[in-house]
Every structure is written in structure tokens, then in C-alpha cells.
Simulated scan of single mutants.
Amino acid sequence: MYLEHVNLVVSDINAMLKFYRAAFPHWHIRDQGHGEWHGKPRKWLHFGDDYHYIALSDHGEGNNRELAGHSVGFAHFAYVTNNLEAVIKRLEDAGFAIAKPGAEEPFRKNIYFVDPAGFEVEFVEYLSDIPAERNLNREALQRYAV
């Protein structure tokens, strides 16, 4: 079993496409159309590859949850990459700034960006192919070292 898609309600699909095209240059618009959601017209599209995509709908109103706050809601989602520096460069070249650095871990590197709709997106590069190492954090390493 694997996650096929995430469905994000946004106000500006084009701004979202600029961000996700920079992050995933091999992705494309798989499908798109117009419809209605509970009485409000919307444009929607699926942006991804043959196995995974992000569904975007443009009928959003208001602001996303405050990421630094404690409100219930979506915190972030993460993508694994084989070249974190290349992802960072593409996003920065497209005008997006790093939102916060990742933790310093011995077996992975990560970084966080916030997309134009206010969703926090983490990008992770693993430095080990051993799951037990990939999933460790500094605190766990210290416990094992004792």
C-alpha cells in the first residue's frame, strides 16, 4: 500500500504549479477540469507522475492554519529525494525561500519550504539504505550509545 495523492484546496493553482514544477520537473498535468463543490465553481487539476500526484482545486477561501501555532490541522508532508541540494536550488531559483532548516542527523538531510498556499513541504535525502539508521534521530542515537 502507498499514498497515491494529496488533495489541496488552494486559491491560486498557477502559483502552486510554479512551486511544484520547480520541485518536481519530471511531473506533468495528468488531468484537469471544471466542476462545482457544494455550490461553488472550481477548477481542478492533478499534477504528478504515473504513480503519485497532487490534486489541486482553486475554490479555497481564507488562510491556511498558522504553521507555528497549535491549531488542529495539516502540519506538513514530505517527499524523499536522491539529491536534496538540487531540489533546494530549483526552488530557490524559482523564487522560493527555505522556510526552516532540517535537523542535523547522521543518516539523513532535510529542509522545509512553504508552498504558495501555506502548506509546509519537507524534502528528505537519506544517507543510508538501512531503515533502522534512516529512522534514528539524535536522541535515539544517544540512548543506543549508552
Results as ranks from 00 to 15, higher is better:
Lys109Asp: 11
Gly95Ser: 06
Arg42Lys: 14
His70Gln: 13
Val87Thr: 12
Glu85Arg: 08
Gly102Glu: 05
Pro101Lys: 14
Tyr51Trp: 09
Asn14Gly: 07
Leu141Ala: 03
Asp12His: 13
Phe107Thr: 05
Asn7Val: 09
Val87Glu: 02
Leu91Cys: 08
Tyr79Phe: 15
Ala22His: 02
Phe77Cys: 15
Gly35Phe: 05
Trp44Met: 06
Gly39Glu: 11
Asp50Met: 01
His76Ser: 08
Glu92Cys: 11
Arg143Asp: 09
Glu122Arg: 04
Ile111Ser: 05
Val114Asn: 07
Val124Trp: 07
Ser71Asp: 15
Glu92Ile: 00
Glu66Gly: 00
Trp37Val: 12
Ser128Asp: 09
Ala140Leu: 12
His59Gly: 09
Ser71Gln: 15
Pro106His: 09
His52Ala: 12
Asn14Lys: 13
Tyr79Ile: 06
Met16Gly: 05
His70Met: 12
Ala75Glu: 13
Phe119Tyr: 15
Gly60Gln: 07
Val10Gln: 05
Asn7Glu: 13
Glu36Tyr: 08
Met1Val: 08
Ile54His: 01
Arg21Val: 02
Glu139Arg: 02
Arg65Pro: 10
Val87Leu: 02
Gln32Asn: 09
Ala117Arg: 02
Ser11Asn: 11
Trp27Val: 01
Asn7Ser: 14
Asp58Pro: 02
Pro25Ile: 06
Glu36Lys: 10
His26Lys: 13
Leu8Ala: 07
Asn110Glu: 13
Ala78His: 03
Ile29Ala: 05
Phe96Lys: 11
Pro41Thr: 06
Ile29Tyr: 10
Ala117Lys: 03
Gly48Trp: 10
His34Glu: 14
Arg108Ser: 13
Lys109Pro: 01
Lys40Ala: 13
Val114Leu: 02
